[in-house]
Design a protein around this nucleic acid. Structure first.
Length: 496
RNA sequence: GUCCCCAUCGUCUAGCCUGGCCUAGGACACCGCCCUUUCAAGGCGGAAACACGGGUUCAAAUCCCGUUGGGGACGCCA
């Protein structure tokens, strides 16, 4: 039988990392088994579902390359794939259960239900519906409904136990007495989650349901429904929750959790996917952590997924991202970083080939520092936004300046630089040699002050590279004026 | 409150099912050294864990029970 899995988010907010990992595991499983990955939108919560969230979520999924071959916007023979468009279908199936006496109308009001809960809580009893309306004769119930009385349709939960074999959790079971008669159809006739889910998974011929751990308790309910309908249930795999640094469920408090934010910060989709795959799962072969999509597909194994919850670790994500970034060639990296520089209006929206090449040099100089693309803004600032007045007062810079002979080096360097009309790497090296001669300083004591003279900072990319970048940049037509070596040293000396 | 699940370095994990090869391996982060014209990067090295208590067994990280800690479910949300 060919594998069919689905990712079924509800469009009530932004896609966050927990959801994405669920989507990813579904996708990996489908790809590995040469099966079908389906996107179904569970928008039965009319009050909170919004079309913009649905669009956003599809965009996020596509960006991550977790593409579906059946779903809301591609259709297929099992559609529609939006639950709100399937309400008639649900009512049809509900009718069937009602007619077979496996479900019944319940007329209890919200207040009554709430009072019941309070009583149970006070008495130390489990919280669940008492089944009070079971005794209403079906014919009478139907008449009340026809007369316009509000009613929900509830499942008549049988006695005994429900059990299943979870692919990640192993054998799981529960006493039916733990489950109350749950709602199938709301009083407005719309389908409740568990019910819609079973009808859809059956009709869409889903073979494995891979979803969050929180759904384990729903699985028992759904199993009861499969049983009532006489449908064969799919396999189930439940995934543990992803936790934040403080051990609570990952949320906005822990930083970016929506995919859009990761994208904006400049995480590569493959890196995010790689990291998320590693959260709760490890390849059989030890020591291989940086993996491509293809490798993930080949090595993924649902039965090796961890039962215990994993903590999201930014540091490790950064490392994974950096590792993937390093695999990129210069032109690709330039292409990715350019929009960030454009966002700051540091470079034109349509750079000339000459400028493009220069940007490549810039990126090459700073790229070892990047955890994520956005970091280029921080690391390239000294090129585009040289500000000695601000930076010279920094502690590390002050330390450099207070070293013996540091100021002398800067002044000597300054004097000699001024004597040159234009500078190239050769000339710069000559000047350094002269300064060395004149001051008697060498090594760290020589280059550290020179760095300050050129960048007003105590650390940064290689000076040789920077000199070229400054000089070439100063000759380019850019939205911001790139200062040449001469101008920089001049400015620093003035601020000493 | 009731029920369920989980438990190896700070973090992600290998090993657990099928006890001995575990003096518990790898990775991130951390610390040190090397490299270096700074900071990184890179190379090398270090510190760091089987939650606790009972069993079972010649032998337990691995099997069983309990305790503790953490998480989840109990909606006309999904």
């Amino acid at each position: 039988m060919t594998v069919r899995v689905r990712f079924a988010p509800s469009p009530t907010g932004h896609l966050h990392v927990g959801n994405v990992r669920t989507a990813l595991y579904n996708w990996l499983f489908a790809r590995q088994k040469k099966g079908t990955f389906i996107l179904r939108v569970e928008d039965t919560d009319l009050a909170r579902s919004e079309r913009r969230f649905e669009e956003q979520l599809m965009e996020d999924l596509r960006w991550l390359s977790l593409v579906w071959t059946e779903g809301v916007d591609v259709e297929g023979e099992h559609g529609p794939y939006r639950q709100t468009e399937r309400f008639d279908l649900y009512r049809e199936y509900a009718e069937r259960l009602l007619n077979e006496g496996k479900a019944y109308h319940c007329f209890c009001s919200a207040q009554e239900l709430e009072q019941e809960r309070q009583r149970q809580l006070a008495a130390g009893q489990p919280l669940r519906y008492s089944g009070k309306c079971r005794i209403v004769p079906p014919r009478k119930a139907r008449r009340r409904v026809q007369e316009g009385e509000k009613a929900v349709l509830r499942m008549k939960v049988r006695v005994g136990t429900v059990a299943f074999e979870d692919i990640v959790f192993g054998p799981l079971h529960i006493e039916c007495s733990e489950i109350g008669d749950f709602v199938l159809l709301r009083s407005d006739g719309s389908a409740q989650y568990n019910f819609a889910c079973v009808v859809d998974d059956t009709l869409m011929e889903i073979t494995a349901v891979i979803r969050g751990e929180g759904h384990i308790s729903n699985t028992y309910r759904q199993l009861l429904l499969y049983e009532a309908f006489g449908f064969k249930p799919p396999h189930f795999a439940h995934l543990s929750t992803i936790l934040g640094k403080d051990g609570s469920k990952l949320s906005k408090r822990h930083g970016a959790t929506s995919i859009d934010e990761f994208r904006q910060q400049g995480y590569l989709p493959v890196a995010l996917v790689n990291y998320l795959a590693l959260l709760g799962w490890a390849p059989r072969k030890e020591g291989r952590e940086i993996l491509t999509l293809e490798q993930l597909i080949a090595e993924f194994d649902l039965s090796r997924v961890h039962r215990s919850p994993a903590t999201f670790d930014w540091e490790k994500l950064n490392w994974v991202n950096r590792s993937h970034l390093k695999k990129l060639d210069r032109s690709h990296l330039t292409e990715l970083v350019t929009p960030y520089l454009q966002g700051r209006a540091w470079i034109p929206s349509e750079p000339s080939p000459e400028i493009k090449h220069w940007i490549g040099d810039v990126i090459e100089a700073v790229f070892k520092y990047l955890n994520k693309l956005e970091d280029v803004l921080r690391d390239a600032e000294l090129i585009f936004d040289f500000s000695p007045e601000k930076n010279l007062s920094e502690t590390h810079v002050q330390e450099v300046l207070s070293a013996d002979g540091a100021v002398e080096v800067i002044r000597e360097f300054h004097t000699r630089v001024q004597q040159h009309q234009s500078l190239d790497l050769e000339a710069y090296k000559g000047i350094i040699a002269e300064v060395k001669e004149a001051t008697g300083q060498k090594g760290k004591n020589l280059f550290h002050p020179v760095r300050v003279a050129l960048t007003a900072q105590s650390s940064g990319p290689e000076l040789d590279k920077l000199v070229c970048i400054f000089e070439q940049g100063s000759r380019l037509e850019l939205p911001v004026k790139i200062l040449g070596v001469k101008e920089r040293v001049q400015a620093v000396v003035e601020h000493l």
